[in-house]
């Protein structure tokens, strides 16, 4: 460890370390890149890619050490995954049983002509490795289970079915994990942080049960998905950093036709 520490200190310029130097350290000391960058942060050395996050090394270390589960990796989930990777969330568990289809191309972050027919989570994992190779991504190609929730600290709701959302919220309540909710339709979206205390998902879907039949897919525009996913990513980051948020006490409705954001008490 001392030799690694000496190496990192030697390569650190102005308190930052470049990816090429971190990769050289990984090869020299036979350690994974995420471990090298985590060690650098312990030494108050910021990986260069996080410089413009504007966080202190201790705060960035909190993000790097966090484990976030993204349940549903389509519109909301895919965009949240890309944003969390750029923020530097260290471990992402992406769970989705589906493959990309042509009608996903209008709004889903990792849906491309080349990814059609491929599992959404696998495509996301590949793409994220080129956004941020220091993020460990687990791509899970099946419906979510309670074990997926148990494996993470915070859960992001990227589902498109109210009954499944209730099931997910039940797991999160049982395991005391905050659930960063988002949902979209047309020009409208909603978001909030569900906890065992506020029972937000039951509030938002009062006439739905876990075994309710799925509704037909709804229309969704890419800007709506991007706005709501961005708020979900911000809320996730704030939860990790311990930053107080109005969305811990309220849910928010977003109307992109009127450009209005309204807070409603949870």
């Amino acid at each position: 460890m001392n030799r690694l520490g000496d190496f990192l200190r030697q390569r650190a310029a102005s308190g930052t370390i470049a990816l090429a130097d971190a990769r050289e350290a990984a090869a020299t000391f036979r350690r994974p890149l995420p471990e090298i960058e985590e060690q650098a942060l312990h030494l108050n050395i910021m990986p260069l890619r996080y410089l413009r996050n504007g966080l202190r090394c201790q705060e960035q270390l909190s993000l790097v050490q966090a484990r976030v589960g993204i349940i549903g990796c389509g519109g909301l989930g895919g965009t949240v995954a890309a944003l969390l990777a750029r923020l530097g969330i260290g471990r992402l568990r992406l769970v989705d049983p589906d493959c990309f289809e042509e009608h996903n191309l209008n709004r889903q972050r990792f849906a491309t002509i080349d990814s059609l027919g491929r599992p959404k989570t696998e495509s996301a994992r590949r793409a994220i490795s080129s956004i941020n190779p220091a993020v460990v991504v687990e791509a899970v190609v099946r419906p979510f289970t309670e074990a997926d929730i148990e494996a993470v600290d915070i859960v992001v709701d990227g589902l498109d079915d109210a009954g499944k959302r209730l099931e997910l919220a039940a797991h999160c309540t049982n395991l005391d994990r905050p659930l960063v909710h988002g949902a979209v339709r047309d020009w409208h979206g909603q978001t909030g942080v569900a906890t065992a205390r506020n029972r937000l998902i039951a509030t938002l879907y009062p006439n739905v049960r876990e075994d309710s039949a799925s509704k037909p897919p709804v229309n969704v525009l890419a800007p709506t998905v991007t706005v709501i996913a961005a708020i979900q990513a911000a809320e996730t980051c704030k939860l990790i950093l311990g930053v107080d948020s109005p969305l811990g006490r309220n849910w928010m409705l977003c109307d992109l036709l009127e450009d209005v954001f309204e807070h409603i008490p949870a």
Partner: peptide, 8 residues
Amino acid sequence: IFPVIGGG
């Protein structure tokens, strides 16, 4: 009166 918003 608020609608159910359920898409993802």
